[in-house]
Amino acid sequence: MVKVTIDGVEIEVEEGTTILNAARQVGGDIVPPAMCYYSKLEGSGGKCRTCLVEVAAGSEKDPRPMPKLVASCSTQVQHGMIVKNASSERVKTGRAGVTEFLLANHPLDCPICDQAGECHLQDLGFEHGKEATRYREERRTFDPIDIGDKIKLHMNRCILCYRCVYTANQITDQRVHGVMHRGSHAEISTYIEKAIDNDFSGNVIDVCPVGALTDKTFRFKSRVWFLKPMDAHRDCPTCSGKAVVWMFGNEIYRVTARKDKYGEIETIDGKTAWICNTCRFETKEVDKWNVEGPRLINRHSVISQNHYTLQNPLNNNTKNIQ
């Protein structure tokens, strides 16, 4: 076990734990936001740079501070390490910069985006963004494309977190989903427009932190905050069958996997509870599900909190209202 101090909170964690995961063990305000890291996906993280933290002391042995801000999702803790997240001005500036970069080319189409209300970029912009954009240039645009008949890709909204790429690579059995081109022209693509034809391809929708990948069976049907999420399960030959059905009255509008407060699919019985496409897209009849009861949703999202305040990055009390 190694001892690490994050924003003044001392915690003992197992060796090899990353700073982000150590912070998550404590929870609350000291947890850096993460747009690309996904603990269930091997190799993810390090790309979006929103989880940058300041390391004020490297370790007990070598207490020198690290010169640069480090990505907390991919930096392992050392015994005696002192980390500053919310308490560091450098981190706040750096994170505000990253937020601005992520939003620079992001369309302001939240009013018509299916992800609105459960979008991590909305949360990030709310906490660390500016009131107005300084980006005067024309935004980078792409045409929306279909990935198979059930998934829509809006590349304009993508922040290139690579989560869907790792998912397609690790969950589905063939690699037809990747990134083409480079720099600001980089785009998510199924190679040469080849659709992902796989029982688990729908999970790329769940891992997407923004509205780049959306469920075509739910497109424009309803705002997520009008729906009631219910834990439900069914006997599925393909997957665990444990999902969340999003209901309006007695109708199921959409089905997603069960996600924790960091937006990650939960581990159930020791396994990540990915759900199959049959459950997700084709099982919308209430009688096919055993509805367990209302799901306690984490109101991480700006809109699901139903709590608008003046935008102020320093105002942290808008978080964690359950």
Partner: peptide, 18 residues
């Protein structure tokens, strides 16, 4: 540099192009 950025991390991808 904007042309040669790999586009993996956001500060470089968006910042150089900007």
């Amino acid at each position: 540099y904007a042309h040669e950025s790999c586009g993996q991390c956001s500060p470089c991808r968006e910042g150089t192009a900007w």
